[in-house]
Write a protein that binds this DNA or RNA. Sequence first.
DNA 1: GCCGCCATGTAATTTGTTACATGATTCT
DNA 2: AGAATCATGTAACAAATTACATGGCGGC
Lengths: 186, 186
Amino acid sequence: MNTLSYGLLAFLAREPSSGYDLMLRIQPFWQAKHSQIYPLLSIMEEKELLSSYWIKQFDKPDKKIYTLTEQGTRKLKEWMYKTLPDPVTRDELSMRTFCMWMTDRDNAIEIIETRKAYFVRRLEAFEALKDKIPDEKRQFGNKEFYDYMLIQKGMFNASAGLEWCKWVLTMLREQASIEPPTLYSS
Amino acid sequence: MNTLSYGLLAFLAREPSSGYDLMLRIQPFWQAKHSQIYPLLSIMEEKELLSSYWIKQFDKPDKKIYTLTEQGTRKLKEWMYKTLPDPVTRDELSMRTFCMWMTDRDNAIEIIETRKAYFVRRLEAFEALKDKIPDEKRQFGNKEFYDYMLIQKGMFNASAGLEWCKWVLTMLREQASIEPPTLYSS
DNA sequence: GCCGCCATGTAATTTGTTACATGATTCT
DNA sequence: AGAATCATGTAACAAATTACATGGCGGC
């Protein structure tokens, strides 16, 4: 049972859904391909944490709907008391920033602009998710309270990333052509 | 050649260093164990992107110092023009937040406090790194300008994370004992 | 006619973690 | 006495990505 498995259980605790559906809904918070999700679901079904049934569709392919069993619910609740591991971020931009002095300024600007666009897209996506939660459900006591928390988590991060991009861009543009440093010389 | 490999080249473009040293210095920006780094370095040496020599030490074990070759430098520079992939974050807290309604409030608070402490530690670590860069070197035109950018990147993110934790904690504490929602009921 | 979405699955490969292995020095 | 740091490496395992495989529907 890895984190993704528990994540799938967490989504299924809300409502029974198909693997495809889970894949789409988990994306903004945990990147995973369908090829990773499908096998995990069937393993969890074998362990009887999940049960499944097929829904016949006529215009689209049939769906396999997974539901959390009581065992699954228990397992999820237990997981909530285990030590929380530190988050892991792998961002190629960090590695690139560190050797940005080796490339031309136009390229540096383009790299940051690309990332900036990503954060703008991401913020819009989170905004759309947030709009789906009505004000009265954002209060403590509703399950949606935690949806709201989670979306805000994404937005806080995306905003910080966006601000950083803007800040770097002003720095890069403000400074006129100053000669770049060379290898092994400070 | 994966991102970590390029990351190692990026650090080596600044100054020749040992695998152990690289492992320590890359940590705040890209989590990688020595068992992953050592093999990558020797592969890159085979490809002649790096060259190495041993330094004898008397109180500590000997060191193998890697230096970037001209080929390595070229490879790094080329990499800077490739399309930037989106960052990947895997945070178990996201998954847990989504099913926090299933646990008691005390546990919820403890989870967030743990994460808050992590961000405080991280901010302190970045602050220490930042302090090492003198003001005059933080300007565009120095390599250290990009060190500064990178550290700020980490700080922007850690601050956002910390603010989110504080915000969630006030929400969780402010609200007195309201009955939590139950499975499959909104 | 080709592309993308829907929907599920497996196989091959790469990437990352944990464990094994060694050994001196320094701190508690 | 035991743990932590320094320092390098390999082996086994787990996690994640890319590619292979199928097939209908709808848009351009």
